[in-house]
Design a protein around this nucleic acid. Sequence first.
DNA 1: ATCCAGGAACTGT
DNA 2: ACAGTTCATGGA
Length: 305
Amino acid sequence: MKWKRHESYLEILPPKEFDFKECLVFLGRSSQEVLHQIKAGSVYKLLKIKDETILLKISGSSPSILIEFPIQFPSSNTYEEIAEYIWEWFDFDQDLNGFYQAASKDEMLQSLIAKYKGLRVIGIPDLFEALTWAIIGQQINLGFAYTLKKRFVEQFGESLTFEGDTYWLYPSYEKIAQIRVEELRGLQFTRRKAEYIIGVARAMANGKLTKASLLQQKEYQPIKKSLMAIRGVGAWTADYVMMKCLQIPDAFPIADAGLHQALKLQLGLKQKPAIEEINVIAANWENWRAYATFYLWRSLYESNK
DNA sequence: ATCCAGGAACTGT
DNA sequence: ACAGTTCATGGA
């Protein structure tokens, strides 16, 4: 991880294969997003580290990323954790040359990379957020998923208002561990989703589920198995979390409806491909299937709202 | 109206 | 192990 602390800002020095503007497109994909805002090419995001709540203004200043602090500066031992969060969020540990090389054998990926070069898997470093956001999104359209997330965040998260804009933190598992199913039903969560989400919160509050213990397992299958042992987490959610939170570049949510739609459009198919066909299509994506998926998702919001 | 959404658990065989 | 059903709601 490379970063420098300056007098009034923090500078992150990303790897060469990175395009801040491409990542901004992803971050701006939903007008209903509540966990960050984009204004004049900068991303504003509230972050809580230990007991410090800090507003970040994140800007691209090629080749660096600059982090400013519109409200107040963090305490000096918090800078490193902020840099770490940003590093993880933009997945800077991956060397995308591997992906670009793997894609040289695949015409479709090559064309996506030509369009979106420098796009990285924008992650969800917080395990509770990653798991519950995935659960929220199960089997509903993305627009409604964002509606539910907004209600959830605005009901149970902390917020801070600065110069007329309100910034939100995702609800903590400590808080959600204490609520009742009915409170989520009132926000139009299904009963089952409410149970899953509260269950995840309680497992984390008990210390039975942590990001560190998942990552300790190193290998793909054991991690996936541990995730799928959680009620509400099937193969799709496990792969989604491995991709977005555990930064496993080969995680592959093969049953994903968006992936199927993107493949159909990119390959000009008459209908969406079956799982067996996707395995054939993805034969050359080895080690980079999360990136292939992410670039395919990107292709779906060419003209988004 | 009917089908599908960035699925998963449950039930019956 | 496998297939069919249920959950619940919004959008096209």
